[in-house]
Design a binder for these strands. Sequence first.
DNA 1: GATGAATGAGTATTCATTCAT
DNA 2: GATGAATGAATACTCATTCAT
Lengths: 196, 196, 196, 196
Amino acid sequence: MKKGQRTKQALLRIAYSLFISRGYENTSVDDIIEEAGIAKGTYYYHFESKEQTLEEVIGMMIDQEAEAARQVLSSGAPVPQKIVGIIASLRPRQEEQPIEGALMRPENALMHAKIKRRLVETVVPLLSEVVEEGIAQGIFSCDNIPERVRMLLVISSEIFDEGQFTQRDVEVFIDITEKLLGAQPGTMDFVRALIH
Amino acid sequence: MKKGQRTKQALLRIAYSLFISRGYENTSVDDIIEEAGIAKGTYYYHFESKEQTLEEVIGMMIDQEAEAARQVLSSGAPVPQKIVGIIASLRPRQEEQPIEGALMRPENALMHAKIKRRLVETVVPLLSEVVEEGIAQGIFSCDNIPERVRMLLVISSEIFDEGQFTQRDVEVFIDITEKLLGAQPGTMDFVRALIH
Amino acid sequence: MKKGQRTKQALLRIAYSLFISRGYENTSVDDIIEEAGIAKGTYYYHFESKEQTLEEVIGMMIDQEAEAARQVLSSGAPVPQKIVGIIASLRPRQEEQPIEGALMRPENALMHAKIKRRLVETVVPLLSEVVEEGIAQGIFSCDNIPERVRMLLVISSEIFDEGQFTQRDVEVFIDITEKLLGAQPGTMDFVRALIH
Amino acid sequence: MKKGQRTKQALLRIAYSLFISRGYENTSVDDIIEEAGIAKGTYYYHFESKEQTLEEVIGMMIDQEAEAARQVLSSGAPVPQKIVGIIASLRPRQEEQPIEGALMRPENALMHAKIKRRLVETVVPLLSEVVEEGIAQGIFSCDNIPERVRMLLVISSEIFDEGQFTQRDVEVFIDITEKLLGAQPGTMDFVRALIH
DNA sequence: GATGAATGAGTATTCATTCAT
DNA sequence: GATGAATGAATACTCATTCAT
C-alpha cells in the first residue's frame, strides 16, 4: 500500500470514529484534520467534500460488514446459526464503536439511515441465499424470500441495534423469525443461549 | 383561540411544511419567517429556539395521528380492521404532505427518527389495547403484546412509509401480521382489497 | 434617514474606498467589516454578497456622476463648455479618490470595466442632448450623434483617466472633438486654458 | 525546438485558451494541469507562478499580433489599406478564440487591460510608421502622430472588439479616421466593402 | 405583541505553492 | 525532466440568537 493510500485509510478511520461519536453534522472538517494531524489541503486532496467522505466511510463499513457476513455464509455452520450469525455480524466493529448504540442517537440519524439503506441492499441477497439453503434442507418453508428477509433485518435492527432489549424482545424475535421463515417451533431456540 | 395562538398554529404548520419539504437542517429560521411573513423577533417571541420548534412540530403531528388512531379505536369496526385502520392513520396528513415519502429522504432522517420514536411510544399502548380486545374475542392469541405490536409498527413503517411497495410486500405483511398476533389464516385477507 | 440606511450608506462608502485603493478582488469582506467596525452578520444583513456590494458601489458612483453631469446640463453655460464640463464631471469625487489614477491600476480592471460600461450607458444620452442643442444653435454639425458621443467619451477616458496626459494629447483631443462634432476650428480652444 | 520547449508551448496555448474562456482568476492551476494532462510539479517546473504564466501568455499573444501587423506593414498594399489591415490583425487568432468577444467579458477585464496596454505600446510605433508613409505620399496630413494613432486604436477597439457594431458605427469610424489623419473624404470608403 | 438591525462564532471549500522522490 | 502528496493561509458566506425600540 502506498503512502497516500495509508493516509487516506487513516483519514477514513478517523472520520468514521468522529462521525459516530459526535454525529456527522456535528463533526467539522477542522475536527477531522486536527484529530488526524494533517493540513486542510491534505484533507481536500483526498476527499472531494465532507459529504463524499461520509459516503466513503459508509462504503468502508458496508464492505467490512459484508465481508463478515460472507465469512459466516461460507462457514460450515447449520443454517439457522448462519442466519443469526449474519445478523449478528452487522454491528460496527468493536474497537471502532466508541459507545454502544451511538449510531442510534438522534445526531446520527442521517448516517444511520444511509447505512441502513445500503446494508439492506447488500445483505438481503446474502441472507436470501441462506434461506434458500434452509428450504432445500427442509428446515424452512416460505415464499417471497427477499421480502421476508428484509423484514427480518428490520426487526433485528429494531430489537438489537440500541443494545437495550429485554428477554421478552428475544422471545418475540425467536417466534417471529421461525414463523417468518416457516420453521418448526424450536428451530431458533438456540438464540436464547447466545444472549446471556 | 386567541390571536397569538392562531399565529403560533400557523407558524407551526409552516415550519412543519418546510421541515418536511427541505429537511430540518436545511430550513433556516429566515426561511420560516419569510414564508410566514413575520419578523425575526416575532418568531422568537413564539419559540424558544429552532430546536424547540421542531419538538413542537413533532408534538403537533403526533397529537394529530394519535387523535386519528383514537377515533379508529372507538369506532365500531371489527378488531382486525381497527388494527389496520390505526396503522393506516399514522401517515402525515394529506394537505401537509407535499411529496409522498418525503419523510424518508435522507435530509429528513433526524425528523423521521424523532417522529418514529415518539410515535411508537404513543401508538403501542393504543394498538395493544386493540390486540387485547382481539384476544378477548378469540380472534388473536399471543403473549408479549407490546413487543409484538412494536414489531408490527416497524414492519408497517418499513413497507408502507415510502409509498413504494409491491404485491409481494403486501402478502408478506398479511402473513406476518396474522402469525405475529396468532390469528387464523385469512383473518387479514381484507387488506388485499384495501390496496387496489 | 433611518439608522439602518445610515449604516448601509457608510458601508457603501467604505467598500468603495477599499475597492478603489486595493482592488475589488484584493479586498476581503473581512477587510470591509474591520474598517467599518461591524460584525460579519451585519454586512450580510445589508448585502446579499460581495459581488452585489460591488454593483451597489458602482451604482452609487454612477448616480453621483450622472447627477453632476445633469447639473452641468441644466447650467446656463455655452454648449461647448457644457460638453467639456460633463466630461470633466465623470471623475470619481476628490475626497473619495485616494490615489489619482487608482482606477486604472490592473487590480481595478474589473471595477473599471464595469463602471465604464454603465457610465457610457448613462452619459451618452445626456451628452447627445447637448450635442443636439449645439446643432440647433449652429455650433455643431453632424449625424450619428450617439455613436460620436460614445467615441468622444472613450477618447476622453483614454486621455484623462490616468491623469498622465501631455500637451500634445490635449491638442489632439481639441482637434478630434471639433471634427467629431463638426464644429468650427477654435470652438474648443478654451479647453487649453482649463488645463494649466 | 526541444521537447521541453514543445511542452511549454502547449502549456501556454492551453493556459491561454482557459484564461480566455473562463477568465484568469477563474482558472486554477489545477484546471490547467488537468487540461494539459501533466502533474502539478511539471507545471511549476515550467512556470514560476500563475501570474508569470499570464505574463507569458500575453507576451505570446502580443508577439503573434505584432508579427501579423508587421506582415501587413511590409506588404505592398496602399497605405489606407495597411492601416485598416493592421487594426484588423489585432484580434486573437481564430482557432484559439473560443467565443467572439470573450475578452470583453467582465471576468477577463484584468487580462484585457494588460493586453491592451502592451498592445498599444507595441502597435503605436508600427502604425505611426504607416501614417508617416501616408504623409510622405500626400494621403494624410497631421501632426502629433503617435497620439492620433493611439486614439485610432482606442476607437477601433471600442467599436470592433465586442463584435457587435452597427453600420452607423462603421460610418463614424470611417469619418473619424479620415479626419484624425487629415485624409481626403472618401479615402477610407473601402472599409465599408470589407464589412459585408 | 411585534419589529428588524446587529451579532459573531462557525463552516466548507479553494488554491497557489513546495519539495522529497 | 517529471511527479503528486502535502501545505495552510485565505475566503465568502450562514444562521441561530439577542435586544433596544
